[in-house]
Design a protein around this nucleic acid. Structure first.
Lengths: 228, 228
DNA sequence: GCCTGTGAAGCTATTCACAGCT
DNA sequence: AGCTGTGAATAGCTTCACAGGC
């Protein structure tokens, strides 16, 4: 019931767990509408499509405790997860590459109520800069260092063509970015302190196409929360 | 050297491995420009950012053999991977939801040389249907079953809002789709023979933001080929 | 020497199963 | 009775390390 104070944050946490916590948070937020104040691990598990034991383990990891009687208290659990992911008031990110996908990202993260917001965008194309797209200002890529420094942003979204990905990543790193969500079909070389999450859409669709073809006959194993 | 004939396809194959094979294929295709005809596991490993042992394991799994002298022959390895993923002439998919993200997907998969192509799109919005966007015809969602049946497509991309995701997925399943790449922030309920790959972009960015915040101090573990 | 192929070991992630609580 | 919290067991994935070949 009391706000969780995780004494020893485990020194190593996997992105899978962080992803699931993010998912639980979304589900819990949706639950706030319902009258019930408590939720059981098996209920969350069904919504998240994981096992009840997994839910309990994950919550154990962030040091949250429920009660056998009422399960988990939705409010305080939400508070604990927010606390752990430390996003009390939301998170800022920048975007590099204002192509079709980049624009889609802008519109996606500019939706009201989004905890994440894109506070600046960059592109090499002079035609695209100094405009406002989806209420986000677009800068020339050369201004990246000062702009990111001024805004104090630590996460970047990379939606440039493969050929420009490494260069853009280098710039992001020089500007002090610590985490990159990379949509370019290229593997980035960055210093070890920079976290990179690859999201190669072509690869994802090829995986889907592969499993779609082995219909029924072969048993499918997969399905691991989008590969984190 | 001889085209691989994998006698026993392992009965269970994980999406992680399929993803890596897809990655190797892309890298090998890029290598075709170079004069060299052979490649060693450690070279592929560096490009793919995995360990050499992993490369050898993965290739072992599809029954391909190299030679200690020359490593792997690029052409025949490509052939073997294509053979395994059975995409000799490319793969067709449909798209549901012609929003910003859907359009970005269309432009992405309509690029020349893409092995994957979107052969039809669907939307509920009457303003969007019966048009051609990025050279892809857009149909009303009611036509899904006949159109998919006629085209014989087995994979679908879902880019609708969360609230419509389950309904759209149900339609896809009724139309005979066997695999879904789901961008909607919702967990789909589908029959067990249908493969679902979730790609929740908000969650991905939250994961990136999380790890971007624990700069240097905490050690990061993650990074597993986009979570497949 | 330096490579591949692979059994065995190591590591991570998930589930089991049950004690303890209410 | 039915839940949580968690040690122990299992399953899955990756790396080690070395035999065998050129």
């Amino acid at each position: 019931m009391i706000k969780a104070r995780f004494t020893k944050t485990p020194s190593t946490i996997s992105s899978k767990i962080v992803g699931r916590l993010s998912l639980y948070r979304r589900l819990l937020n949706e639950m706030l509408r319902a009258p019930s104040a408590g939720v059981y691990s098996h209920e969350l598990a069904i919504l998240a499509k994981v096992s009840p034991a997994q839910v309990r383990r994950d919550l154990m990891l962030i040091g949250y405790s429920g009660t056998p009687a009422k399960g988990y208290d939705i409010y305080s659990l939400l508070e604990s997860i927010n606390d752990f992911l430390h996003t009390p008031q939301g998170q800022k990110a920048v975007l590099v590459g204002i192509g079709h996908l980049g624009r889609a990202m802008l519109s996606h993260f500019m939706q009201p109520g989004s905890r994440l917001s894109v506070v600046a965008a960059f592109d090499v194309d002079p035609c695209k800069v100094n405009r406002v797209i989806h209420s986000c200002h677009c800068h020339p890529i050369e201004d990246m260092e000062p702009v990111i420094g001024r805004l104090g942003v630590r996460a970047g979204i990379l939606t440039v063509p493969a050929g420009q990905a490494q260069d853009a990543a280098d710039r992001l790193v020089r500007a002090g970015i610590q985490g990159i969500l990379n949509f370019a079909p290229a593997r980035l070389h960055v210093p070890p302190h920079v976290f990179v999450q690859d999201n190669d859409i072509t690869m994802s669709l090829e995986v889907v196409a592969f499993f779609a073809r082995m219909n029924a006959s072969e048993r499918v194993v997969a399905n691991d929360l989008q590969g984190n």
